[in-house]
């Protein structure tokens, strides 16, 4: 059995597909190397190798690729253009493969999903397996195994999150792309601050997939970005069960700038939009979050007083 080392950057789509990728490569008997959590060095290298206009999340991704160089046989860089008919993804995800290929002299393993042009995820994974020397059967089995396990895991996480909604303390929905919510440099400090303030955190990447389109339509009828639709659907699903929403964006995100505007206009409960860039100081951030928590606490106190009267 060949022992192939696959490097996976812990950035961008990692936070969405980590189970699927892990299980697929594991089943095929490949060794997996994950880059370390984002740190200053990764960020600085990312900035060095990125175009100026790139968003912070993409800059971080570039830093992770730099980190993985010479540590593995291949680095996994998927190209995702379209996951559902009539919908698209941010152009960064379709450009990722070419961007990395032209920036770093490293071996890339990629898969290409473009449903509009009849390139499904399953076909993409089989093709990727073929490049690594696995038969169609082997790859297909590994994909089915990984996909079903990953889907099961999603259901489990949703159940767990639903239980959290029963908690009595303040609940805040952290809404945004998973690569922002869970990144060590973007979302992690915010999560930490909120937990220190005894807040129960609900995450927008864990949501119910049924009726997604109907839910999105209550906020906007014209959104065609798949990942943004997921965020909007999560917000609609949780709105009535939480105290407030923190909308997390990395600067400058095109799709978010449009969809956030619609969310901010339509949502009735307290909501703030935090836009993060590579500036180091988080003083302003702390002030914003603390005063947001104050607002939620005061509101709750007021509501309790009213129901007691």
């Amino acid at each position: 059995m060949k022992n192939i080392k696959i490097g996976i950057p812990k950035a961008l789509l990692y936070f969405k597909y980590k189970e699927l990728w892990h299980l697929f490569f594991q089943k095929l008997g490949c060794q997996i190397i994950i880059s370390s959590d984002t740190n200053k060095e990764i960020l600085e290298n990312g900035i060095k190798f990125s175009p100026d206009e790139a968003c912070m999340a993409l800059k971080i991704y570039m830093g992770h690729i730099h980190f993985l160089q010479n540590k593995c046989d291949y680095i996994l860089v998927p190209r995702l253009a379209c996951l559902k008919k009539d919908e698209i993804l941010c152009t960064n995800f379709s450009a990722l493969y070419d961007l990395i290929k032209n920036t770093f002299p490293t071996n890339i393993i990629h898969y290409n999903v473009d449903v509009k042009h009849n390139k499904t995820e399953e076909m993409a994974f089989i093709k990727m397996g073929k490049t690594l020397g696995f038969s169609k059967k082997e790859s297909q089995l590994a994909y089915y195994y990984a996909k079903s396990r990953a889907d099961l895991n999603k259901i489990k996480m949703l159940d767990e999150q639903k239980k959290l909604l029963q908690q009595k303390n303040l609940k805040i929905l952290l809404a945004g792309h998973p690569y922002n919510l869970y990144d060590q440099f973007i979302g992690e400090p915010i999560q930490k601050l909120l937990k220190e303030n005894n807040i129960t955190l609900i995450f927008s990447d864990i949501y119910e997939e049924n009726d997604l389109n109907e839910q999105v339509k209550t906020i906007t009828k014209t959104n065609y970005w798949t990942y943004n639709k997921e965020i909007i659907a999560a917000i609609v699903q949780y709105e009535k069960h939480i105290d407030g929403i923190i909308l997390l964006t990395s600067f400058p995100c095109g799709p978010d700038s449009l969809s956030n505007e619609m969310i901010l206009r339509k949502i009735k409960i307290p909501i703030i939009n935090l836009i993060l860039d590579e500036a180091d100081s988080n003083t302003g951030l702390i002030t914003r979050i603390e005063s947001f928590i104050d607002i939620l606490e005061e509101r709750r106190k007021r509501n309790e007083e009213r129901t007691n009267d």
């Binding site: 600067f251 307290p270 302003g284 607002i295 005061e298 509101r299 007021r302």
Partner: peptide
């Protein structure tokens, strides 16, 4: 009604 309901600060 005597409580803060919304705020904004200059960001960038």
């Amino acid at each position: 009604d005597g409580i803060v309901v919304d705020y904004a600060m200059n960001t960038l």
